[in-house]
Amino acid sequence: MENNISQQSKTENETPEIVIEESPRILTDSMFKKFFLEVASITTFTFRFFKEVVKPPYEFNEVMKQSFLIGYKSLPLVAITGFIIGLVLTIQSRPTLAKFGSESLLPAMVAVSLIREIGPVITALIFAGKVGSGIGAELASMNVTEQIDAMQVSDTNPFKYLVVTRVLSATLMLPILVILADGFGLLGSLVGVNIKGNVSSYLFFSQIFQSLEFNDLIPAIVKTFFFGYAIGLIGSYKGYNSNKGTEGVGEAANSAVVLSSLMVFIIDMIAVQITSLLQG
C-alpha cells in the first residue's frame, strides 16, 4: 500500500513540465511584424529628414564641420584603397589579356571597370564601414549619455543639428571621395602597368580618356550621391534610435554598417538597371 502511495506521488511529481514551444508561424509573424515596423520607422525618419532639411534655421557651420570630419578625414583611407585596387586589378588582369594578345587594352579595361563600378562600390563600402559606423556609434553614445535630450532641453532641434547635417555631409562628400579614389586607382594602375612594361603616363592616360565616355562617368557619379545619402541616413537612424545602454552603442554601429553596405549593393543594382535602360 505504502509502495503504491509512494509510486503514485512519484508519478505526480514526475509530471513532465509543459513546454509551450513557439510555433514557426508565430515566429514568422513576429519577424514580419518587426521587419515592417522597422521599414515604417525608417520611412518616417526619411520623411522627417526631408521636412527638416528645408526648414530654417540652416546649420551651415555644422555641415562644414561634418564635411571636414566625414570627407577630409576619410581621404587617406580612400586614397590608399583606391591605389591598391587599381594596382591589383591591373596585375590580375594582365595575364588574361596577354593570352589574347590584348595587353594594350589593359589601361582602358581597368579604367572602365574602376570608374563605372569598382571605384564607387568599394569606396562606398569603405565609407559605410568608417563613416556609417562612426555616425551610428556617435549618435548612440550621445543618446546613452543624454546629450540628445540636453540639446532638446536647450531649445535646439537635435534632429536638425545632428541628423540633417551628417546626412547632408555624407551625401556631398562621398562623390568627391569616389572621384579621388578613382584618380588614385588610375595611378595604381599606371604603377601596375609599369611593373612588367614601360608605358609613359601620357600614353597611359591618353588611352584611358579615349576609351571613356560621358555615359561611363555621369551614372557612376550620380549613384554615389545615393550611396552617400543611404549611408548617412542609416547610420543616423541606427544611432538616433538606439537602445539606451552601452550595448546599444555597439549594436547601432554594427547594424549601421551591415544595413548600409547592403543598401549600397541594392542601390547599385537599381542604378545599373536604370543606366542600361537609358542607354538602350
Binding site: T145, E146, Q147, D149, A150, V153
Partner: peptide, 13 residues
C-alpha cells in the same frame, strides 16, 4: 524658462 541638470551632466563630449 526651464533648466534641467541631467544625472550624468550630459555634457557635449
Amino acid at each position: 524658462k526651464i533648466g534641467f541638470l541631467f544625472q550624468s551632466g550630459a555634457l557635449y563630449d
